[in-house]
Design a protein around this nucleic acid. Structure first.
Lengths: 128, 128
DNA sequence: CTTGCCTCTGACGTCAACGTCAGGTTTTAG
DNA sequence: CTAAAACCTGACGTTGACGTCAGAGGCAAG
């Protein structure tokens, strides 16, 4: 029933993180792993997606403490109404951050455009 | 010719950061301030926007070292072609991060929707 | 003029997300 | 069979973005 399984180094390279990071995630309760007879970690292939999600949640400004309660539900699909509130709260935070980043990108675009034009037309540097 | 000026505490509360953070930004060369006769920092009102931009750049995953060279150009509008490359590179990073966050938001949405439905219809927890 | 709040400059403390090293076992390639 | 490569568990080190405390000076109000 099981698809391909991965060892920690393979998962690390496929997910674009370090081996150390994966052990850290496990330590923080973000990522679970089976163990082989000799004690080596064995991951299902969908762990790649889970790791990427963790990275994205970090990028969204969440800390491990905030990610930990929501990862089990990503795996099992079970959510308490209490957790649902948290999910929606985090969703809102992410939306906020997306808005800020879009703003920032547009600001950079404005600068880039002005400069590109002034370079193109040989003008010194238009302002005001 | 100058509009309203702000003291550090006022700027901090208007920009939603701490006083310590503002001093830190100055230390890192991200934010410049005039000084009153007695040595107190005096900011123009547009410093509020600059601080928010700094926060957004932090949220985009940039470090102070990466923000420092681009802030002067935000103020003056002057950009070297070398800096233009950096701006475009950072812009690309920001776009990437926006993409990741949108993905993450959608993933959360999927979970929220499924749970909301199952709660609504009294089902245990649909999966597979 | 003093009381209370704001500001200043150091300087040390903190916390999260890893990096890195030590010392040992396991797996794989030849 | 053996050597290299990957893995294991501690455990200490690092870095960035501030927090916090100490000690001193500035400024509007009564």
């Amino acid at each position: 029933m099981r698809g391909i399984t991965l060892r920690i180094g393979e998962l690390a390279s496929q997910a674009g993180v370090s081996v150390r990071a994966l052990r850290y995630y496990e330590e923080q309760g973000l990522l679970t792993a089976e163990r082989s007879a000799s004690g080596q970690r064995v991951y299902p292939d969908n762990a790649v997606e889970q790791v990427k999600l963790i990275q994205n949640l970090y990028a969204a400004g969440l800390a491990s403490r905030a990610i930990e309660p929501i990862m089990p539900c990503v795996r099992t699909g079970e959510v308490t109404p209490e957790l649902l509130d948290r999910l929606m709260a985090e969703r809102a935070r992410i939306e906020e951050r997306i808005g800020g980043l879009v703003e920032t990108r547009d600001k950079l675009d404005a600068i880039i455009l002005v400069v590109a034009e002034s370079l193109h037309e040989g003008r010194p540097c238009p302002r005001d």
